[in-house]
Amino acid sequence: MTRPVIHEEETPEAQHPFTEAWGMFRKNKSAVAALGLLALITFGAIFGPYLYPTDPFEMVWMPFSPPGQEGFLLGTDYLGRDLLAMIINGAKVSLMIGLSAAVMTVFIGVTVGALAGFYRGIVEEVLMRITEFFQVLPTLLFSMVLVALFGASLPMITFAIGIVSWTAVARITRSEFLRIRELEYVMASRASGASNLNLMFGVILPNALPPIIVQSALMVGSAILFEAGLSFLGLTDPNVVSWGQIIGSNRQYILDAGYTVTIPGVAIFVTVLAISLVGDGLNDALNPKLRQR
């Protein structure tokens, strides 16, 4: 018997997922602009202290010197410290806390969500009840208690923010796992002898990542806001500058020298807005439901 000739089957034209996502992201003009702005802020946070080496704690001039009038671009605060130096140095702290709290959030959330969604049954019951417990806690109050009890160091603040915000990530991860675990390629991996650990983190998680990435990008923004809130209330490390802390310490003078709270406020606003817009762009790029082909 002659073997039938195999015609070379046509290869469907499709882009690599990454290229496709970037293409979608690029269509969202505000997200691209926000990404540029964010890059600029990050650059300022990393290299700013070297480019503008004024010590943010040093009293360099008279208090309440208005912006741009006596040689200080953003003026001085109530102790006569250079506000520009404070903003630059505060950016590092705000961004770092935002990022590390988001990392912690993702770490706890993904672990809990993955275990609950994969194993179902009693594991899911217990983990989701714990998640709900953290969801109903008054978040600001709980983290204030933590910081007040254990001291206002940066790691503790990060921990306090992370511990109250991981629930959203856990729920998203769990719902993605519940959906994906039933798909055929998971069964196929199981049939080729993959272990549970491998199935969870090698097979299901990579497919569950898009919404988790979007959520954690937004998490960075909300963590920055949270930190600002805590330090406004004075629950912050007094040895480092952060944007919220600048607002908090100058709040008594809001009527006489409004710029001392407006400027750090604008910094927070712009940064968080940029992060949200980037998150929005990521959502467009990665969320298959919003994708128009």
Binding site: A188, S192, V203, P206
Partner: peptide
């Protein structure tokens, strides 16, 4: 599984990761 007994599935579209 996958070593001594292995399996192929109905839907090649969905059974690859």
């Amino acid at each position: 599984r996958g070593n001594e007994i292995s399996m192929i599935f109905q839907e090649p579209m969905t059974s690859l990761n």
